[in-house]
Structures are given as C-alpha cells and as structure tokens.
Design a binder for these strands. Structure first.
Lengths: 162, 162
DNA sequence: GGTGAAAAGTATAGGTGCTAAACTTTTTGC
DNA sequence: GCAAAAAGTTTAGCACCTATACTTTTCACC
C-alpha cells in the first residue's frame, strides 16, 4: 500500500514517544555515583532531591509530594541516614513530627545532582530557546493533549478495577 | 523579574514533559483486568503481547526483544502458564528450544489488549490527523532531540560508573 | 481537664520484577 | 568424539512499593 507512510506516521510517532518514555524510566532506574562515594538508587535520589528543595519537610509531607506511602518514605529515609546523607531533627512545635535536613555529605550529592541537571539540560534548553513561539505553543498544546489521553487511560483502568 | 514567564517557558515545558513521562510509566505499572479473569502485571502483559505478535518465539528470542535476561522471561513465562494464557511447544528442529504460543484464554486477553489500544489511541490518532505536516515534522524532530538528550544522559552514567 | 479519635512515624510481611550465577540438557564445531 | 556453546530453569538477592499493625503524641469535643 503506497500510502502507508502517511497513515502510519502517527503510529510511528506514538511508538517513538513510548520508546522515549521507557528509556527515560530505564535511565531513572540506574544507580547514581555523583558527588559522593555512596551509591544512590532512584528512590533515594528522589527523596534526597526533595529534602534539598524543601529543607525541614516531614515524612508525611514528603510522602504526599512523592505520591507514595509514608511507609515507603520511612524506609528510604533510613537508607539515606545510614549513608550519612540526611538527618532527622525534632520539630520544636510538634513532638511527633520530624524535620528532614541534608548533611554536608548530602548537600554534596544534592548539588552534584543539580549541577548534572544544569549541564545536562543545557543543550536541551538551548534547543528550546531556538524554537519559534508557534512551535512552543504547539508543544504546550500537544502536551495537554497527551495529558488528556493519560486521563482517559487512567479512567479506563479505574473502571475495570472496581 | 518581569521576564520570568519567557525564560521559564522551556523549564515549564520540560517539567510538563517529565510529568507525562513519569505518569505514563506509572500507568504501565498498573495491573490489568481486561479480557480475562486473571490479573496481569506489566511484565506479563509485555510478554503476552510479544508472544501474540510473534507466535512461536523462544525464551531467548523474547529476552533479546524485551532487552531483559532469559531468566526474567522464564520466570514471567511460568506465571503466564500457571494462569493458563501461554503454552510451551517443543521445537521440531531443536530439542532444546521452546516455541511459545497463546492459548485461547491467552488470545482473549491479547485481543482485549489490542482492542483497548485501538479505542484508546482512537482519539489521539484523530488529533494527530488534524495536525499540519509542519507540526508533524516538528514533533518528529522534537522526539529526535529528546532521544539525543537521553543518549547524553546514558553516556554520562556510563562514564561515572566505570 | 479528661478521653477518644486522628495524625506522625516505624516495622514487618509480602509481592513485583529484575539480575547474576549455578545448573542441566542438547546442539554444534573442530 | 568431545569440548564449547546455546537454551532453558532455578535460586538467592536486591530495589521498591503497599498494606497492616503498632506506638506515641496531639487535637477536638464534651
């Protein structure tokens, strides 16, 4: 069929997109060795980054932002403390709450991660800056459409799970 | 700073994109309840889909295509067989190889999944069809840029892992 | 002010999904 | 013919998450 290259174009794009999604998830699952001698795993990096962004956050607060259970945060937290990257401090106004802070070792890892993002995102930001307003607007709209699609996906799961 | 909305636009888009990527990965991790009474998990769906697409494939062949170890395939395969969705057949030309096939129950799940994709992708394909050739080309180029970025990412991990 | 419910955090069991390594059996190559 | 390679399975172990039970503290209401 000589028109395959036209009708298949969207499918081709969808597959390209899904490839990117899977590769990104894959890369995020790789352990990390920057800024510290400790090996950091995905969940640990996420929590470290969150604590660095919001020093003094609580376990429950972190769980809400990471959208996981507080039990999961508690477990990851323990690993970060064993590695000497994070410390717990008592909340002066609430005897049950805990305030999470980075140690200097933790800050080293945190800023190494931030710096990695800077250099890494550099080229990409550059590419973005070179785009026309039309293309930027289009991308924005496109992402919204994808988000709507994901809503539909989630909804279809919700229905068939009852 | 009054120009924040301009300089932050790329960052805003990057975060939007990363949100989509994470949400998609999340949705793929949800268990599945279509076309069969059995609950299917991500690895099981992937393998089921692969066997449906390529009936008669071997364990090692599947491992290569899924880019995981054959041990992982063997484990997932066992679950699919316990659920009665897949069966092993001897390879007539190679006594050690195994040919994987869907049972009727497996085909039901496989086609339910395919049908779900059809209806699900429907609206999105529609949206795609309405796009101009310029926008399509731009998206294609954009995904290529993201792929390049992921290459850089992988490379940076490779270096720091030696 | 006292009491019961809610909230913060921890600990544990269990489950998915993967790798690495050890193992068996068959096929292939010299 | 025999060693090496290939196909597949099994096991131990790790990362990561949820659900649940639990303790301790705080809060709200009478």
């Amino acid at each position: 069929m000589k028109n395959d290259h036209i009708t298949d174009l969207p499918r081709h794009l969808v597959e390209k997109f899904m490839g990117i999604v899977r590769r990104t998830a894959d890369l995020e699952n790789q352990p990390w060795h920057f800024g510290t001698s400790e090996t950091l795993y995905r969940s640990e990096i996420f929590l470290l980054e969150l604590i660095g962004d919001q020093e003094g956050i609580s376990v429950t607060g972190g769980a809400d932002l990471l959208r996981i259970t507080k039990g999961a945060v508690s477990q990851t937290l323990k690993k970060l403390m064993v590695k000497g990257l994070v410390e717990k401090r008592a909340d002066s106004e609430h005897g049950l709450k805990v305030c999470l802070h980075l140690t200097n070792k933790g800050k080293s890892a945190y800023f190494a991660h931030k710096h990695w993002h800077e250099t890494m995102d550099g080229g990409f930001q550059c590419y973005f800056s070179g785009l026309s307003k039309e293309n930027i607007d289009f991308l924005d709209e496109f992402f919204d459409q994808v988000a709507l699609f994901l809503d539909k996906w989630a909804e279809s799961l919700r229905i068939h799970t009852n």
